[in-house]
């Protein structure tokens, strides 16, 4: 029987894996990410959750859509040679995740509180830190010949996405949503 800590640690890493894969794939391919934040999630909005705190290189942005816009601007090449959407490429080099509240209850459906105790690795609030490199203007076939390389450090607080977790055998969809996002690249 796995200890409480063990299950939470394993589940938090699995959640982190899925999140990291989704998030960086989305931003590398100019796909939307706004729906990965608590903003606009009906369960959280109904329960009165504040919008996600998003701080980008020291600048607070009000909505995930604004962050998407910043990413779009970042990709923008005033004289684009072609419609190369991958002008900016994020490469994750490592991440680490901690459970910071294993008994997360905010906006939780009663059913979830009944089924899952704090040791089940479900009702977790997590802190995820992700580190890697960002390549600007790199050759589209590899990351060489870039015009600029930066290093980034992303910190997320993730909370359960009840709508998805509630479904039995939830396999698809974002199981955890971003409640806080801090980005630094330098």
């Amino acid at each position: 029987m796995a200890s409480e800590r063990e299950t939470n640690v394993r589940c938090s890493i699995e959640a982190a894996d899925a999140f990291v894969e989704w998030y960086y794939n989305q931003i590398n391919h100019s796909k939307p990410i706004a729906y990965g934040y608590v903003n606009g999630n009906s369960t959280f909005e109904r329960a009165g959750h504040p919008p996600a705190d998003i701080c980008i290189n020291g600048l607070v942005v009000a909505t995930p859509q604004e962050w998407e816009k910043l990413l779009e601007q970042q990709r923008h090449r005033p004289q684009s040679l072609s419609l190369d959407k991958n002008a900016v490429h994020y490469v994750v080099e490592g991440y680490d995740v901690h459970v910071i509240n294993s008994d997360y209850r905010f906006a939780a459906p009663q059913k979830m509180l009944d089924i899952h105790g704090p040791s089940d690795g479900v009702r977790m609030m997590m802190m995820l830190t992700v580190t890697g490199s960002v390549y600007f203007g790199a050759n589209k076939k590899d990351n060489e010949d870039y015009t600029l390389k930066q290093h980034f450090h992303d910190v997320f607080i993730l909370v359960p996405n009840w709508e998805i977790l509630e479904k039995p055998g939830a396999r698809y969809g974002r199981k955890y949503l971003i409640a806080s996002h801090n980005y630094r690249a330098f």
Binding site: C55, G58, L59, Q74, H76, Q79, T147, L148, A185
Partner: peptide
């Protein structure tokens, strides 16, 4: 033109 074809990173602000 070379400059124009390079994307530029999100601006950097001090501690928040």
């Amino acid at each position: 033109a070379l400059k124009a074809m390079s994307p530029s990173p999100v601006p950097q602000f001090p501690s928040n």
